Simulated assay, not measured.
Amino acid sequence: MSRGLVHALAWSLSTGAAVTLSWWGVHSVMAGTAYDRPRALPITAQTATASPPRPPEATSTRRPPPVSPTPSPTPSPRMPSGPASPASSAPADPTSSPSPARQEAAGDVRGYTVEGGRVVFDIGASAADLVSATPEAGWQMQVWTQPTWIRVTFTRDGREVSVFCTWHDHPPMVQFDER
């Protein structure tokens, strides 16, 4: 009987040691791999005035063709509470090539700061292009693009703040919606 107890005790100790060693090894490897979701990079003055064009630092947005740096106003718009929603919502494909209408968009770069983040558009005479969209800490962001409009929506805790840029049958215009 004591021989059986010695075998059971030895098996329990060796199994416990093996499990502890395995857990420690996996834990030490996995501890360095946990990460938060990537965030959009903020726009800095150095980025806007860089002399040779650099490749984009983030894949969630594209840069417009290089234009001569000009100061542009950065209005902080008021949020009207009217409904404004695009007809369909298809996620943006950041790898797709710009359409001819988008290539004509190079013009006035304007930034809009809303609750939830900041959106920057390159607004031309007949079209617009999204330069960047940066969510604030704790906010989620989603972008939709279509041939005649762009929508950027920031969400957090059931709140939704959208920035729309439309140019169907009119010059590009920016609207805001908060729900």
Rank of each mutant, 00 (worst) to 15 (best):
S2C: 11
V6K: 11
S12E: 05
G16M: 10
A18I: 15
T20D: 08
W23M: 06
W24N: 13
G25D: 06
H27V: 04
S28P: 00
S28Q: 15
V29N: 09
T33V: 14
T33A: 11
A34W: 08
A34H: 02
R37G: 04
L41N: 11
I43T: 12
A48L: 15
A48G: 07
T49H: 04
T49D: 00
P52A: 07
P53S: 13
R54P: 07
P56V: 15
E57L: 13
A58R: 10
T59N: 12
T59L: 13
R62Q: 06
R63Y: 15
P64D: 02
P66L: 00
T70P: 01
T74Q: 01
P75V: 10
S76E: 08
P77G: 08
R78M: 04
M79V: 07
M79L: 14
S81C: 04
S85Y: 13
S89V: 12
A90H: 13
P91V: 00
S96P: 03
P98W: 02
P100E: 05
R102F: 10
E104M: 01
A106S: 14
V109I: 15
V109T: 06
R110C: 08
G111C: 06
E115R: 15
G117I: 06
V119N: 00
G124N: 03
A127Q: 09
A128E: 02
A128V: 00
L130Y: 10
V131I: 10
A137D: 06
M141D: 00
Q142N: 13
V143I: 04
W144V: 02
W144C: 12
W144A: 12
T145E: 11
Q146N: 12
T148F: 10
W149K: 03
R151Q: 12
V152H: 04
T155Q: 03
D157E: 13
D157S: 14
E160G: 04
V161E: 03
S162T: 06
S162A: 07
C165M: 05
T166H: 15
W167V: 07
H168A: 13
H170Q: 11
V174G: 06
V174S: 02
R179V: 02
